[in-house]
Amino acid sequence: MSSEQIIFYILSFWFIASSLAMIFARNAAKAVLFLVLGFFSAASIWILLEAEFLAITLILVYVGAVMVLFLFVIKMLNIDKSTLRAKFAGYLPLGLIVALIIIAEMTLVLGGAQFGLEIMPSPERHGADYSNITVLAMQLYTTYVYPFELAAVLLLIAIIAAITLVRKKESTHKKQNVSEQVNVRAKDRVRLVTIASPSKEKK
């Protein structure tokens, strides 16, 4: 057993164990933390596959932003834990049967006979001068520049949609009513009144 295999099996064990702990966790905040552990294991496996940029992105974007967003929402909403697990046992046997069948089928299809080392040999490791970021950037800014810009537009739409959804409709702050401002006339605003002067009253 080579050291690469030992590292792979340790990381896989942590990935599977933390995923199982995530789906069986009773507390949603604990589930998020187990998922963070799973993401770290996944990022390590990606580094084993020489995808360094994506591994760092997974940790920075997912653990740093998305999981913190999950934790933020969980802490913001006061969730009643007792009602969330009412139907827990009912669907577990069905889910386990479906999952075991899928895993058995996948193992048959993806096993060593089809994707083993004899059919698909492991490629040579890149040297120290190889830069994964350079290779990805060359592809991203030439061949895939149009999808890259579309992804930016998608993120902008997501920002606007999220803000529009959660903004309170009955606003507590002052705001302008533009149509009233445009349609206003002078006699609505200025009222001329004649005030009797006090000097005349004395006489």
Partner: peptide, 9 residues
């Protein structure tokens, strides 16, 4: 060496 089928499984 870790084969492709290990990652896929």
């Amino acid at each position: 060496m870790v084969s492709l089928s290990d990652y896929l499984i």
